[in-house]
Every structure is written in C-alpha cells, then in structure tokens.
Design a protein around this nucleic acid. Sequence first.
RNA 1: GCCGGGAUGGCGGAAUAGGUAGACGCAACGGACUUAAAAUCCGUUGAGACGUAAGUCUCGUGCGGGUUCGAGCCCCGCUCCCGGUACCA
Length: 901
Amino acid sequence: MSEYPFQNIETKWQAFWESNKTFRTPSDVDTSKPKYYVLDMFPYPSGVGLHVGHPLGYIATDIVSRYKRMNNFNVLHPMGFDAFGLPAEQFAVEHGVHPRITTEKNIDNMLRQLKALGLSYDWDRKLSTTDVDYYKWTQWIFLKLFNSWYDEEQDKARPIEELVEIFADTRPGWSLLSTAEKEHVLEGYRLAYLAEVPVNWCPALGTVLANEEVTNEGRSERGNYPVYKRPLKQWMLRITSYADRLEEDLEDVNWPEPVKMMQRNWVGRSEGAHVDFVVEGQEDKLRVFTTRPDTLFGATYMVLAPEHELVDVITKNDQKAAVKAYRKEASGKTDIDRMSESKTKTGVFTGCYAINPAGGSRIPIWIADYVLMGYGTGAIMAVPAQDERDWEFAKVFDLPIVRTVQPPDGFDGKAYTGDGPAINSEFLDGLRIDEAKARMIDWLEAENHGEGTVTYKLRDWLFSRQRYWGEPFPILRGEDGSVRAVADDELPVELPPMEDFKPTASDDPEAPPRPPLSRAPESWRVVEIDGVKYERELNTMPQWAGSCWYYLRFIDNMNDEAFAATDQEKYWMSPAGVDLYIGGVEHAVLHLLYARFWHKVLFDLGYVSSVEPFGRLFNQGYIQAYAYRDERGIAVEATKVVNQDGRPAMDVQDQKGQTYFYEGQPVSQEYGKMGKSLKNAVSPDEINDQYGCDTLRLYEMYMGPLEASKPWNTRDIVGVNRFLRRVWRNFIQDDTDVILVSDDPATDEQMRLLHKTIARMTSDMERMSFNTAIAALIEFLSGIVSLDTIPRSIAEPFILMLAPLAPHISEEIWQRMGHEESLAYAEWPEVDEKWLVQDMLKLVVQVNGKVRGTIEVPADTSKEAIIEAGRTNEKVIRHLEGKEIRREIYVPGRLINIVVG
RNA sequence: GCCGGGAUGGCGGAAUAGGUAGACGCAACGGACUUAAAAUCCGUUGAGACGUAAGUCUCGUGCGGGUUCGAGCCCCGCUCCCGGUACCA
C-alpha cells in the first residue's frame, strides 16, 4: 500500500461516523453526567462557499467537543444555517432564482464542505432559520415580546395582561376607555411596538436598517449604499428597558474584555442630571441633559439641535431667516458632510434668552449641528470652560467663558475637563467634582429645577424590514389601523410563495417603501376573523431575529409543542448557558447584544433558566494572506504571482528583497484578511485534495494561538503533513500493511516521555492552546521514531491524544490496533504522577543573574548541598574568584543564583 | 482624539506563577541513502568577537528609564501596527 492513504481513510471514517450516528446526542442522555454545550456562530450559506479562514473556529470547537467526549461529558455540538436576510436575498436576486432554492443549494454545498472536514456535529439537530418549523418559534417569541411590558419596579418583563389588571385597579377611568384607546396606552409599554420614528432608510436596498447596520460613514453595512434619515412607522423592540441589565450582567460572563467593552460603549450609560431652564417669553421650560451638573454656574449659553421642536417657537423675528437657512442646510447634509466639516463649529443665534437657574444670569440660546437630536433631550447647556466642544463654539462666536473648576497651576489649555475644586459657584465652591455633582443634584431637586438622571446611547431596536426573505410578523392590522396578534395556535404564518420577490429599490430617498409582501396574493394578505377583515403585516423581521435564539432550538429541535422542552433546556443551559461559544469579533455588538436581550426577556417570562445565553465567548482570529495589486491598484490572483526568479510568490513571500510580477507586469505586495476582494483566498477543497483534512485541521491549529490573526502560508503545511506521514510510517509497515504495535512493556524512559506528554497535552487542551499541543505530539513521536515496534502501552495513549486533532488517521490506527469500537468515546489518557518525578535534577547556576554553568544532582539532595555543588562547579568558580559572596538563592528544581560583590 | 489589543531569529510562533529566551514547525545550509532525483533519516542555524579545537566572552524579546539577586513577563515615559469608536453634552 502506498504511504499514508489519507483519501481512503478520511472517506471511510466520515462515512462510518455518518452511518453510525457516532456524534448524535440523544434526547435521553444520562443527566447525572456533566454537560458541555459547544457552539459555533452559525454561517450564512453564501454562494461562494468556504475559504480556509472560515473553518478555523469550527475546527477548534470540534477539537474541544471530541476532547470533552473523551472526558465523560455529554456534549451538545450542533450546527445550522442563518439563511434569512439580505445576503441570501441579494444572492437570489442576482441569480434570478427564488431564495428558497438558492438557499437550499448553498446549504447543501456548505454541508458538503463542512462534512469533508470531519467535524463531529450532531447533524440530526441541523436547522436553518428559514425552516418553517423553526421560524414558527421565532414568531412565537415575537408574540411574547408583543404581549409583555417592562415593570421598572420589579426590573423584569411581565405579561401585558398583568399590566391591564394593574391599570384596571389603579388608573382612574381605565374601564371607560375604548378598546382602541386602551390599546394606544398599552402600545407605550409593549416590548414590541409600532412607532413613527426617524429611521435609517436605504433606498438602494429598498428597506430600513437598524442603527447597528449603518456604518459611521452613513452607509449600509451590507452593500455600502447611502442611508437617509426619514420618519416611518415601524416595529420597534424596547431593548432600552434592558440597558442596565445588558451592561451589568457583562460582569458575570467569561467573555473577551474588548467585546464587553464594545457592548458597554454601545449601551453608553451616562449619569447626570436633567436641568430645566426658563425661556424668556415661554411658558414651557427648556430641558437639557448634562453629565456635569456641577458646572451649571459656568453655563453661559445654550444650544439646541437644529431639529429641536422648540426652535420655531422661540426664534425671534429678526433671526428667523438666518435660523431657517441654517436648519435647511443642516437637514440637507448627509452624515459624511457633517463629519468632513467637523473641524470648525457652526451655528446661529435664535434671538431668544434663557435664565440660568443657578445664579439667574441671562444666557443666549443658539442652534448648532454639534448638538444631536438623538441624544439626551436634543438641547444642551454650554459650559465652555469645562467642555472642549463648547469652548471651540464659544471662541468662534465670542461667547463668555466662566471657569467653575480651578485648573491646576500652569494649566495653559483651553477647556479644563479634569478634577479640581469648584470656583465661581456659590454653594459649590471648594468641592471636588463628585461632591459638587451630588450637591447640585440635591439643590436642583429641592428647588424644582430638575433631577438626577441617566441616559443611554442605546436606542430601541428597529425591527421591520421591507424585504421578502425574512420571517413574516404574526400580526394583523384592522382597517381602522388597529393591531392584533395572530393566535399561538395559528402559527406559523408562512411566507407566501411569490414569483416576484424583489424589493422595490430606488435612487430616490423620498420614494415610499413598498414591501414585496404587498404584492402577495390576497388569499394570503387578507384574513377574516369573526366577520372583521384584517390585512397581514407586510414587513418582515430582520436577519438578526433568527440568530437571536437558535442556540435554544438546538437543544430540542424536533419539539413541536415548545421551542424546547423545559427539562432539556434546564439540563443544557444551567447554570451559565452555552459553555463555549466561538465566533468572529465582528458580531460583538449586533448579534450578541440582540441575543442577550431576547434571552433576558425569555428568562423574565420563565421560559429559560439562565440569565445569560453564552457563559463563555471566544473570538478566533482572522486568517490573513499576502495579496498583490498591479499598477492600476487592482488585485490580481495571488496564486499566479512570481518573484524576480520566476519562483511562485507563495514560496518566498515572507522573505525580504523580493520583487513580484503578474503575467510579466510588476505588482506590489500587501497583506490582509483572506477573501474574495483581495483575490488571496485559498479553498479548503484544494488542501483536502492534496494533503487531506487531518493535515488541514492540524495546520490551521498549528499556525498560532486561536485568538490571534495570522498569515496563511501554504508552504508551511508540509510540516504537519510530514508529521502525520511519520505517524503512519511508524505505526503501519510500508509494504506489508502490518500494524507495528507490540505487547512488549515500555521502558521507563518511554513511560516518562508518555506521561510528560499527557500532562502537557491535557493542560494545552484545557486552555485551547492547540499549537503547543501539536508540538507536544511531534516531540513525543520524535522520541519513539527509531523503534521498530511501539509498545501498546504508549502507542494507544498517543493515538487517543492525537484523535481530537486528527480524528481520521487516529480512528484508522485505533481500529488496526484491534479495537472494534470508534475511539470517539474512549477515555482520555490519565497522567500517572510517578512518571513525572525526576531522579536527577538539572540545575542552572547563575552568578549575578548570568548563566555560568549547569549541575546535575540527585533529586533528594538538600538545599545546602545543592548550593555547595553550584559554588564549586568548575565553570562557576572562575566567576567567583576574588569576590565576596553576598547572597545565595535556590529556586527549587530550577536554578541557583550566587550574588557576588 | 478617546478606549482596547499587540510588537520575540530569515518566517509562523514557544516560554502556563518574575527563574536556562528562541520549544515545535517552515525556510536555508551540510551530510547519509540513491546511477540520479523525489521521499526519508542525521546534523547545523539569534547577532558578534576570540580560539587550531573543545570552548569562552559580549550583546540580544519595538525605543528610553526604573524595581529586583534575576525582567520577554512588573512599574513609568514614548514609537509604530491592528481593532473599536467618534461633536453622546
């Protein structure tokens, strides 16, 4: 037989696992055993398939799953597809085929690629968010949101009926209200509600987008099209009610700090005060939000956002023209314009004055676009002495500046935002910022000028999309505009089959949105209940809906009574949810924040048992690769680039002094994330064909730490491939195909090597340090490579340790060693400490911290004798001559350091 | 600007609790086997100096300081790279 027949082996074992359902997790697992739920962020089934960067995380979770199975855990390791949403629909539109068909085709291709990697998923739990019996439950959860409200006192969501009962008891005249009037009140409380709000409208995509889906250049994250603000009536989810809990509960999860930080920033909690200003000639006061109530005495002017509703009311006649012009200019600006002009402040005086409640001075009211309508109250008190933006504005328009915090000596700056004693502030003088804030808030509340408050950057979640390929809302609308939920037993509301599912895209930002479902057949669109006609909600849910809760459906995916049976949910989700969740950091805010929100709602309503969905999150790094551009700056196929000697760039790209050519033309080298756009993608299929997937798995893990981004270098693959070939050659005789394992006892030296390796492997696997784990196996093999036959007592543990990393070759050798069962549930080797004990210690002897010699002593030598041996070592003596020994340090088992002066 | 993360040989990386810096792999070089090549196996490989040699010494983890018997690791001050965020009051 030819050496290392990886193709036969891998085909054989993938078929074996599939037909034996080796990795199925039955619903009646022995719950006395510990559980481990390992989850990947499931992929979009895109048409282009995978490149080698995609499976990095999947390979890692697979290794963890296999390792945990060998450690007597019940492992839940499922996989599915996030197939609704824009990418799937755009692909379908581009190819002119129905999204249901392209989605299924793409899923099939991806399944093939995933299975070719030998990943140990329980494929019986496979799901797609587009499955009718999946999105039935997505709709069901939406109805739970619709039928709930947030009780601020109990700090949890409760069923809306309970609010109705409370209103009946406590709200005078409640029973006199009409159904519509009651519903209007309740709308202000429901966690899913309709509201007319300024939304991010993307005419090119024909849909609205969530704040999270818009880049800071004001473009759509998907497709990079311009996005405009416009008011529309849309479904919203009241995620802001959960702002504090979404922030606070980050404390209790084992997540990467950067991701926690990004979520905290997104929630953007800030503490401060509302302050009410009397406006001359107005009844109503003007309310501002400030984080620095302590600086109120230094507020020398006020600024309203140009969109603020009071602008028209307060503007004096002689300023009307200027204000109108400024407002028009501001509204016509896109976000990009605002950004590019952010250097100099602009604004217009309204002609109107307000009275500073602290000190009573008369201060002018301006409008300026550096104040945003979407944050706080859309109005600020400007304190130029302690705020950089206000300082710049005051300088441009020559407004007064009063310092209310004493800057340190020698401070020559402008606005001073640091701490210091209050000045020019009457009853606050001398207090530090924190004390002054608290005192001012007390005063504001006592004098009825405002109160302490908290605001957030987080907005409610815009939940409607004007697209076809999404979950229909289980909502009916009456002709009078009333809203009615579809009954639970009427679920699912299936997406109607439509020939023309394309969105109505437009270049005109003012064109009215026309959801594709408005063209659905009337038989679907119109529903009659008790003689009343309703039209179905024509928007669909955003892509994130399906991915918000898929981890729960995996637990019990066949259940048609509930999204998951209670006992199953308890077993797999208690106490801290998913035990390991691996995915890219790009989901830090969107998916992870939304999923946490839904989970908390379900928790409040008693449907899930853990506070957080994902107890431990891990971000794998990106795989990067060299890429090449021609003189026009266009990326060229990296595999076809050669160096000055005509060698493929792949072989020399990490060396200096190279110049590169593509079809004879010089090209420049760069380095970036692997992908289509840089034309530097490497397909796993290629590597599989040439080396096999055990090699691919090993190489991806051997490249470096899982969390680090690292360069792909096809050249380096031969390293791990040589290792596997060497394993094969050592275990299987080349010409006779005989297994080279004997029942001879292992030598002591071999046993020491084995147990040292087990100890290293176990700790490396626990901390997911797979690169060093592989190094340990390579070292072990070098230690036994010269043996003609390998003693079974060391051969078997070695194969078991190799198994999670390179499962196919391991299964094959395991079987040839005489085992009838798969090694998938064999026991992970255990360290026998007695083989770790050293009889002789090798110690380094340092003089003043520099290594000068080594000594070898029996392990039971006393400290004094060891130091003596070190001091008298011939190489050491030279460095001690003529010097006084001041100190002698012995670090047990490691070194001796002799300090001389 | 602000907030995170990082920088170790020609390259990817290792050093888990402050204790021999460079494990393991790639590349390169030398050797064995071979008619030859591939494959495989053995050896060398951070830089420099001295020595015929065994070897010895000096320097060395982005830069400059510090703490310590001892610093890649801790502290202070920088540089550069990557990610997030940006008039958020």
